[in-house]
Amino acid sequence: MEVAEKPEVPPAVVNEVNRGEPWNVTVVRARLLSELGDLRLEKEGDRWFAIVADIEVTAPESRNDVSDIFSVSGVEGLLGDKPQHILKPQHIVAVRDASRVQYLNPNMPERIGFVWEQSGNAPIPTNVTITIYKKTYRASSLTDHMEWLDHEPRAQLEVPVEDKRSP
């Protein structure tokens, strides 16, 4: 029997918009930080790992599933819940005023920081692989209601990690 291969995820480019539904995503940078506004590290000696991206909701309604946009790999020791197949960010904040992001409105692009705490014992990352996900609006075969389903990778990119920790 022939083994089905996992389909290859198309590449994306830093600072170029990756268009799709229900979000357009532009990955701007990845950084290590020692301080981040009023956020507090759980453990002394840990550090913040942050991805900054411009997000524009392309769906016709406000969305509260911003934490589904990315998954990251290649960075060890990230803290956070992993209820499904991706490690969701611990904090999602608007760069404009450091407010916590719960919803994003359609066609109102916003620069967002996706933040994880990284264990101080983990190696310092120099690169991170970011996978951008998509969803499809279709009728659920379970409920028959129109829903955003099929949370799947749609693009992948390698981003250098800037070490911006204070000395």
């Binding site: 016709p60 309604e61 406000s62 608007a94 919803y103 409105n105 359609p106 066609n107």
Partner: peptide, 16 residues
Amino acid sequence: AALRDARDRVFLASTR
């Protein structure tokens, strides 16, 4: 509470 525009886009009340 939401606002709907002429293009049927729906904007929930701000959580900011």
